[in-house]
Design a protein around this nucleic acid. Sequence first.
RNA 1: GGGCGGUUAGCUCAGCGGCAGAGCAUUGCCCUUACAAGGCAGGGGUCAGAGGUUCGAAUCCUCUACCGCCCACCA
Length: 946
Amino acid sequence: MKIELNSVYNPEVPENKWYEVWEKNGFFTSSPDAQKKPFSIVIPPPNVTGALHMGHALNNTLQDVLIRWRKMRGDNTVWVPGTDHGGIATQNVVERLLAKEKKTRHDLGREKFLEYMWNWRREAGDQILRQLRKLGCGCDWTRTRFTMDDQHSRAVTAAFVELYQRHMLYRGTRLVNWCCRCDTALADIEVEHVERDGRLWHIRYPFRPDQPLPEGSSNCVVVATTRPETMLGDTAVAVHPDDPRYKDVIGKILILPLMNREIPIVADPAVDPTFGTGAVKVTPSHDQADFEIAQRHRLPHEMVIGFNARMTDRAGRYAGQSLAECRRNVVNDLTELGLMEKEDPYRHSVAVCYRCDSIIEPLESTQWFLKTTGGLAGRAAQSTRNGRVRIFPESWEKPYLQWLDHNRDWCVSRQIWWGHKIPVWYCLNCSQFTEEQLQLLAKDPGFKGETAKMILRNSSGEPIVRVQEPIVCPHCGREEIIRDPDVLDTWFSSALWPFSVFGWTGPRQRTPPPPEGTVIESKDLAPQDYYYPTSVLVTGHEILYLWVARMVMMGEELASEVPFRHVFVHGIVRDKQGKKMSKSLGNVIDPLDVIKKYGADALRFSLATSAVPGRDMQLSDENFLAARNFANKIWNASRFVLMNLEDYTPADIPLATRDLADRWIRRRCAETVGAVDELLGQYDISAAARRLYAFFWNEFCDWYIEMAKIRLQDRAHPGRRAAQQTLVETLDGVLRALHPIMPFITEELWQSFRQTTGQPVGDTVSLMTASFTGSPSAEETGDEVPRSMGFLMDLITSVRTIRSEMNVPIAKTVDMVVRFGAVNGMAESAKTLLKSHEIVIQRLAKVASIRSDETTVRPAQSASAVVGPLEIFIPVGGLIDFEKERKRIEKEIGLLETDVGRVTQRLENREFLEKAPSAEVEKTRERLLDVQSKLKRLKGHLAVLV
RNA sequence: GGGCGGUUAGCUCAGCGGCAGAGCAUUGCCCUUACAAGGCAGGGGUCAGAGGUUCGAAUCCUCUACCGCCCACCA
């Protein structure tokens, strides 16, 4: 074969070539096959909010590594791709786009807006899938799904109705987290808390004057608050029942300033007497804790803040004001009245929306909730506790369980437009609307306005929950039915993803899985039984609760089985400063830019290397550069091998006729592949990648190839065929092991090899479908081979060090004089090695001649070293720098002396001898002898150094 | 207020009971026909601090300090 490979690796060529070949040959597709073990992954569907970011690149690289690895291991692998409609996140993106045209979604109206959304999602969705291909992801594209396609929509509706019928979904009036900007309720977990500088205002609430007050008490109660504007909605003041300061005023009536409303003082154990003044204003409609106090004391609710973030009519003269305006006015008014006692700076946490960072208002509202407490969350936790869902690394198990254990019911209804409409209808007749409400509804037939929505949301009638749109009310038979305008939380929909993608569109009876190890006979298994539960879910820890926990709950409840056996939790990609990458911070690295600059394999390799279990990672150009260099190294090493295969024919060369180096590298290769296999099984992809890097570079390239050159450069060399064969085997083995991480370059090179070595090449022969563990296999045992190789490497390094220290020019060869120590086994084998590897030493250490005997006298003007049982002398003539040589030897002596000291001390320790494992003691003894002998000889060298 | 993780070479990080490692940076020599995106050889560390467990601790335990995440209804 003509060698056309350039000396600089150009990733574009294989990247543009192979993906198409793989896809065209159907290597990514999968169908149930009872003869083969399934290995299935469903993609965490990226939101169609825009392009893929580095976090996606990481997530999908890791999945692809696992998929490709398991495929090469012979499993029937499937990786289901798709995208998520992304609810609020996506709607926000599109709304921002509209804002640039100075439009809001209300200008378009619901229908037009949704049309706009669908157009957006087509573009963004396609882009994401294209990017996954660029990355090299081996997804089964025939199964591509979207969380708002017909099938998934059917699943969502079916799930809603089913859960409603099982009384797990209910409508309730609660304090919910309301984002005034996104105009919707949010689940608790969608709220973030940020520390902000604020103030703590102390306000005087006067007693109603007609009451008898205890001796010496003041005429008011002071309450502390960070939100003075909410006082307009106060319906009580609460104190701790045992607080001596207030014991006697419990039950008394206060006059709420500005509103002149009478409110009682109630005693509630939830009040912390040590905070502030020990008296708390109670605003049931706008504070969770107050809501609960109000429930216990049957206090009235005053909703003074509206869903539009303005004060409601209940706020008296403050009605219509924005929250900030109202706060200013309330503070001013109270100050004027002399009711503001003081105002302290105060740092506290503020609730903000996870999608837009706006402040969250706790508002009273009627919403749909999934009852997760008790049953659902409990069972999900149980399945991890009993090992049916294992989490890797284990350190995530505790926080995961903790979250499930402290779970609260999940608010699943959203008031945005982009999403699955909830399958709920109301009968105007049965809903007991007031005349006034009906009129308002009539004014807004599409129920697009806030008022109409509120009326519907708060209607008291029994909702009609159906898969199919009802034509008449099932209760009264009348046709005046209207659909609830709410949509579902996007996470409700994605919680169904793992079984929806395999065809689930409603619950069904499921036969229990056969016992482990049973051979399944049936040929036409339903995909959901074959691939489900999936093998592993690969995800970042930021959506462990938001998504993973919910999938487990839904899987168990609706699909009768957990959605995955393993959860592989990886870290989050951060920038060089350790900050999370985000568009607003402007610190994002675009994966496509990296691919363009360094190649997809380099990107994948650096992501894989950085994916240390349980740790977030910082990425920068340096990582990509190092990986790019590695790809180049692979390229050039392979080029070298290819260049030496012109006269190669595959040969079965028995071990006995192979060189020490051949046997060594074959063994190391097998060990490396074995280790990589095991590490991948533990989801330690980082360690696997590092292991491959070290083997390829430091062992295969730095030593083996260099040694093999000797036999290759002489066409007539008797060892040439063995060297060629070993090179081919090793390269083949390591390319296979590298393929899951670096698919493009390995395929390209592997194909070249197949061609050069005369093995079948064609579209259907691909490294993708080759076996992970190829040759060489580990037939070497014992420590003879590695020990001999170690000795040779030490020897060569020692000579090189001397040459370098003495500034011997590279072109100049040196002579080597060797003296053997005591005649023993080690000296004998060293002698043999020296003889058999004379040429190797000569070539790698640039040595002209080797003279050796037992009684050699040190040549004049020579530098020296001790290697195992040998003393070596390198006469360097005028180049000798005695000072430098002395320092070098002294340094080594120093190191050896501390070593001798440490080891001696250990061996003099009785307890060590008694308690340490005997192998350890033996090892230490040997080491002492080694080190002592080396030390003695080096000291001798120093003494005669002239 | 709880929980988790981090602190190892100048930088970024592996290692997590038995001779302190890698990449980048750095010093010297080399364009040695696979690779200068490279080769060879160096220099550089009280493994945050203090206790403890152990024959033996960077590694296990406790505490402290600083950094970072996550959870929680402290007005």
